[in-house]
Design a protein around this nucleic acid. Sequence first.
DNA 1: AATATGTATGTAAAATTTCGAATATTTAAA
DNA 2: TTTAAATATTCGAAATTTTACATACATATT
Lengths: 107, 107
Amino acid sequence: MANDDVAKNELRANILKALANLTRVCIIEHLQDSPYNVTELSKLLKESSSITSRHLNVLKQAGLIEQEKRGTTVIYSLASDGIPDILHSVDEVIKINYEKYRVFFRE
Amino acid sequence: MANDDVAKNELRANILKALANLTRVCIIEHLQDSPYNVTELSKLLKESSSITSRHLNVLKQAGLIEQEKRGTTVIYSLASDGIPDILHSVDEVIKINYEKYRVFFRE
DNA sequence: AATATGTATGTAAAATTTCGAATATTTAAA
DNA sequence: TTTAAATATTCGAAATTTTACATACATATT
């Protein structure tokens, strides 16, 4: 594998790492509906604002979300329309896996 | 967020965790070309077969790869065609990020 | 100016992941 | 049966991530 490909896969792995957490997947899902500030998100997630803020920072460092400051509040939103597509492609794989083993779960 | 959605996001996060590692992304990329056994993959990856085997196990537990045993060798392959799509959707997000920050991105 | 609100961060502990080396297991070949 | 090859696993250590709590910081309100 060429060095360029390894570098590319490093970028990929970094994005995937940022997404590979239940709370952060939930954040992405909420931000698909609408932008939210930290307090709103922390209530939706049932997490402290401190924890929420840290998870938002991970997503921001990965370039997956953006922030707009308004006074003391910071409103977060998805950085691009392509981000939900990642979750959708994951859903497709989950569906296929489920169908593959579905026979074992039937009575 | 409904309990069902949290459960769904847990499944998603588990798939993403399995992929969120440089070596494992490289494994997926190689398996797009062809099935490989552990020794072949470990040479391609320049990793020990022990490490390679462990990463393969993580991918297998997540249902992303399958194995076929032939004598002492075990041949691994992608469990579904949908898996490369996950990487492609990640690539799209990377491209958009790079364009946003005006950094050259080679296809 | 004092206070309250929203957000971020320092720090340490807990939890999880990754690794390296050694060892075990299975099967094929000698 | 003995040896070799391929793969998997055990174990402890190192590295990374996540959390909890306290605190800091900026800004708005009284």
